[in-house]
Write a protein that binds this DNA or RNA. Structure first.
Ligand SMILES: [Zn+2]
Ligand SMILES: [Zn+2]
Ligand SMILES: [Zn+2]
Ligand SMILES: [Zn+2]
Lengths: 162, 162
DNA sequence: TTGTGTAATGTTATAATATAACATTAAAAT
DNA sequence: ATTTTAATGTTATATTATAACATTACACAA
């Protein structure tokens, strides 16, 4: 469940191709089609390696010909269904999932300053939430957990600069 | 922190006026203005007692004269700042907060079937999330926790009907 | 109370996000 | 090859939200 390597500016091309390779393998094994458009959208998302809006993606796709919103949204729907990306409700944006092999509830840490994002998949968080929900007679199916704050680097700067 | 009474269809007028009274008291004590529009919007939200979209509110306001979107959004901004309502990111909707006196991180249980909503304010959930975030060097400031699933009643029906 | 500054609201226009509906093309299955 | 289904193209529009500037209401001091 842990990322096999840390993505640095230098290794980011690796990070992208890893994600794409994983996606291809996964789709083949599930017998679903990672078509060129879907592949391209996933690639664009991983190139950013941070939350991207649908219309940002659209704009980039349009550099290689005419594309309309439904095309992007359909690709995003597919990628979400396959667990290859997550949608961030508080940002109206999408981000690649680093471990799509395992179905999971992601928890997202979103830096207010640099907009970077970290996904953690902590079973304890999921469990506590599910337990509390069930304690009030609710049947939980899906969780949205998004935390806004500062990443390590930005928090240091905040404290120095005020 | 616990709701003093359960809202039933019969007692709902009480539930609304309680919320409004509380809001008035709170705003007076904070020396901020619960203007007619703000009061009205809060009232409309509590009348539903479930998540309401901004344009739903707008439509209702327009039954008493011309109103434009910014008016609604400003009122919603104010009510949010005062903690009188919460925004549900996964629904693009707003709901009244039952205990605005205390600042808190709400957790929301949203029924997929009847669209009812329960707010719980479980400190353990907040704490676990904050701890895990800090464990990866993140400084958490604000949490969004929204759980989609079935309320008690709807879950019973689901299981019977399939 | 009369000005003076600030907060709130009005008004118009538009941005940003997302989907409906139907036509066309590509792929898979028979 | 034919049929069926999945995917994409295309046009239009729905839904959610904000920018920018004008006007009005209110608070508070002179
Ligand atoms: Zn994930
Ligand atoms: Zn940061
Ligand atoms: Zn609350
Ligand atoms: Zn229900």
């Amino acid at each position: 469940m842990q990322d096999p390597f840390v993505c640095t500016p230098v290794s980011h091309h690796q990070c992208i191709s890893n994600a794409l390779d994983q996606a291809e393998t996964l789709c083949r094994s599930r017998n679903v089609r990672l078509t060129p458009i879907r592949h391209r959208v996933l690639e664009l998302i991983w190139q950013q390696h941070r939350p991207v809006g649908a219309y940002d993606l659209l704009e980039q796709l349009q550099q290689q010909g005419r594309v309309a919103p439904p095309t992007v949204y359909r690709a995003l729907d597919f990628l979400q269904q396959q667990g290859l990306i997550h949608r961030l409700e508080s940002l109206n944006a999408f981000v690649g999932c680093a471990h799509p092999q395992y179905p999971h509830q992601g928890q997202f840490l979103i830096c207010k300053s640099c907009r970077s994002l970290v996904e953690i998949t902590d079973p304890e968080i999921s469990t506590v939430i599910n337990n509390r929900a069930e304690a009030v007679g609710f049947k939980p199916l899906n969780q949205t957990v998004e935390v806004s704050g500062f990443c390590d680097g930005c928090w240091q700067k905040e404290q120095i600069n005020g």
